[in-house]
Structure formats: structure tokens, C-alpha cells
Design a protein around this nucleic acid. Structure first.
Ligand SMILES: [Mn+2]
Ligand SMILES: [Mn+2]
Ligand SMILES: [Mn+2]
Ligand SMILES: [Mn+2]
Lengths: 220, 220
DNA sequence: AAAATAATTTAGGCAAGGCTAAATTATTCA
DNA sequence: TGAATAATTTAGCCTTGCCTAAATTATTTT
């Protein structure tokens, strides 16, 4: 059976929060989902009790996805990213407009429509933010890029992806030229605030951690 | 506030069942929605109690839409028919494959996406079955066609639309050439079973009421 | 005009997925 | 190490939208 919309959203957030290797805490999950922590505990317990279980869970220790849960999460993420790509490529949406729409449609499209959209787009590898699209057999390709915040003066690279959904932030990044494909070079590093001075294509900008943590580059 | 998916489905069915001018009965509504009559009574009472009311309702007398309810119904129907058109025109769906998909997506698309799809399609007037698409300001254009079942030998016309969602039926109609645009001429009428012998383009077929009631033609 | 039948409504319940308030458990700090 | 604080869980409740079974109301038939 296909998981409910709510469950799909939980699994997707857990996937994102556990990408760093550590379990997702109840509170973080609650914040991301916009649901009260008490309710999140209830749902997590339910997901852990399903047969087969969708998550691994020990009280107070946070939650991780089982293989089954991970597949379900990647299914939703594939839908989301294909939809974003499709909205941008065929209906003229900009990268800061697509998130909300995809957030609802991801639960409503059939596997058939997913396939047709993917085929019509030529089975794209990345979405408009440069994020990797899980494959049709639900494997997440290996991301080769690193956060811009890890680069130091002298290092150069190409922007691969931007991990952000917020409209305002995306518009700001676009105005800076900080979009997938942009060539960048780190000029200065300021150790106390971790600001980086970065030359983007031709223009230099000073970027704080809030930005450099969300922009991923392939060093060259 | 946007009505829930369930409410949208109720309003859409009530619209369809009241197109003939008479109120929709609890039982008919239940059959169309695949919901038990007892549950339908409950929902109808709720819709009538909303402020502003979405339906007009008197116990045992059936239900009709208020102006507010009608607008909400036309909104859903516009979504449905635009989506069907879009699936056929841009993703290669056939007219018998689109209904289910549109049935889910109609509740998930934003007004913005609705506008963009309509614009991309050139603001179409009819969907793949030839059914009229409500306008952007939610008026239903006047349908000029009449059921094929009302025609008698000697009368000729052009198929305007087919009121059917069932895959098998649609495939059958297509195999008969009974699709929007087809030129037809009624050759014989059989009074006891109401069968019509109809020449469709070049080929003649004998059609029962189950078919002739669902095919709408413009007489010429 | 009863009686039989069909349609509709009421009553009581259930599952999903939220919430608040209170209780408990972990963690941090003095 | 004990107290304060932060995180998490439990308990009890609510809304939505459905269900079944029983009761009621309309409509047909005889
Ligand atoms: Mn979602
Ligand atoms: Mn994206
Ligand atoms: Mn629907
Ligand atoms: Mn249609």
C-alpha cells in the first residue's frame, strides 16, 4: 500500500535530516514538518510499528529509515524533483516558484505519470536547484560536490547545487549569480565569522555561513 | 478557505447530477461517489450548514448547489478538464487513460498552475472527450449539442462530445470512430430497443441507448 | 387505505492525524 | 553531584470523513 501524504512527508524529512549520518531528533523533525513534537512522537511510533517497519526507533535516541522507509522516501523525492524540473522546463516557472507546487503534486502523481514526465524531460539527473534526482529504481546517485563553506582562498570550483527551498533566499542567490554551473573562486576567508569572499564569474561577494553552507561546489 | 478533497468531489458530483435541472438524490450521489448513503446524508447536512452554504437541502427532497457551491464545483471541473487536455496534448496519454490521473491532480494544482496550463494549451474550450471547459471566471459555456439518442433516420451531425470516463467504453467508442469531430448520419431507428443504425464517417454501426445517450452531436 | 418496499436519516463507532497540558527522561551547569 | 534546563513522551481530547445497524419516512402495489 502507498503511504499516506502525511507519512510520505515524514519519511522525506527523515531522509533529509539523516543524510549527515546521524539519526533525526523528534524536535528537528517537528520543526521541519511544522508539527508539534508530541504529535511527531506518536507518528514515529506508528511508523516503527508498521510491518515491515519504515523507521528504526529507540526512545530518546532519534529515528532513522529502514530500507523500506528509504525506498518510500526516495520515491517521494524523485517525484518532487522531477516535478520541479518539469514546471521549470515546460511551464516557465522560476527556481524560486516551484517548491510549494511540487510539495503538493508529489503525492498525487501516479507511477505512470512519473515515468512520462521523466521521459519527456530526457531522464534528467538534477533538478532546477542542481539536486540529484533519485533513479527510476530508487537509488540516490552519489553527490560529488562539497559545501562552499569548506573551501579556502585559492580554491576554485563550479556550483553543482543549492540546498534551499525558500523563495527569498533563492532570489538572492540568483541575483548573486550563485546558480548551478557558475564558476567560483574563493578569494578571502575571515576566520571569526567564517565569511568567504568569493568571485562568482566576474563579480566578488562576501558570503556568510548561512549561504556557504547551502551552496555545493565541485572543486577543480 | 479551499474545500477539502472530499467536499470538492461531492460538489462536482452534485453539479453533474443536477445538470438536468432536478435535485440530486442521496442514493444517486452515494452511487456516484462510492460512499454509503448514510455517510452522504451526513456530508450534505454539513455542506448545507456551512456559512455561506454550499448546497440547498431539504430532507428527503434531494440537494442542489448554491451559487457558492456551483463556483467551487466549476473550479474543480475546470482543473479536471484542463489536466486531461494537458495530459493528452503534452504527454501522449490517450483519452481513455486520463480520467483517474486528473481525478487526483484536480485537487492538488494551484490557481497559478491552472493558469499556466491553460495558457500553454492556448486556453482550450473543450477537453479530450469534447466536454466544455469552464472559463477562467468560472462560467460554464452553453453546450449546443444534443444526445445522439434524440436523432432519427435522415438526421446528420458532428460528434461534439462523449460523456464517459470508463476506459473500456472509451476504447470501444474510438474503435467505432465515435470521437469528437466525427461526421455521423442516422440510418435506422428500432423503436422497441431504441437502437440506432448510424453511419460514422464511412462505416455503419448499430448502437444501443447505453451508447447513444452518452454521445452528443450537433445536428447539421 | 393498508401493506410492502424503497429511500433516507439517525445513532453509535472507528481510524487517521493533529493539538495541549502534564509527566518523564536526558543533559548541562554550578 | 545535585539542580536547572531542554528534549521527549504520555494522556486525553478534537476534527474529518467514513462505516454499520436500526429507525424513520416516502412511495408503490394490492
Ligand atoms: Mn509534501
Ligand atoms: Mn529542488
Ligand atoms: Mn476527485
Ligand atoms: Mn473529460
Amino acid at each position: 500500500m502507498k503511504p499516506s501524504t502525511s507519512i510520505q512527508d515524514y519519511l522525506k524529512r527523515i531522509y533529509e535530516l539523516t543524510e549527515n549520518g546521524s539519526p533525526a531528533s523528534t524536535n528537528d523533525l517537528a520543526r521541519e514538518l511544522g508539527i508539534k513534537p508530541a504529535s511527531v512522537t506518536g507518528m514515529i511510533q506508528k511508523l516503527a510499528a508498521e510491518k515491515p517497519a519504515l523507521v528504526e526507533y529507540q526512545k530518546h535516541q532519534g529515528v532513522t529509515l529502514t530500507a523500506t522507509g528509504k525506498k518510500a522516501a526516495l520515491e517521494v523525492i524523485r517525484h518532487h524533483r522531477l516535478l520541479e524540473t518539469w514546471l521549470v522546463q515546460t511551464l516557465g516557472y522560476t527556481w524560486d516558484e516551484v517548491h510549494e507546487e511540487a510539495e503538493r503534486l508529489e503525492h498525487a502523481i501516479s507511477e505512470d505519470l512519473e515515468r512520462r514526465i521523466a521521459a519527456a524531460l530526457g531522464n534528467p539527473l538534477r533538478d532546477p536547484h542542481g539536486e540529484l534526482i533519485p533513479t527510476a529504481d530508487l537509488k540516490m546517485p552519489l553527490e560529488i560536490s562539497t559545501p562552499l563553506s569548506a573551501l579556502r582562498p585559492g580554491q576554485k570550483g563550479t556550483v553543482q547545487c543549492v540546498k534551499a527551498a525558500d523563495t527569498e533566499l533563492l532570489r538572492h542567490l540568483e541575483s548573486l549569480g550563485l546558480v548551478p554551473g557558475a564558476r567560483i573562486e574563493v578569494k578571502e576567508y575571515s576566520p571569526f565569522d567564517h565569511n568567504l569572499t568569493v568571485k562568482i564569474e566576474k563579480k566578488a561577494s562576501v558570503l556568510g555561513l548561512n549561504i556557504t553552507n547551502k551552496v555545493f561546489v565541485e572543486e577543480t
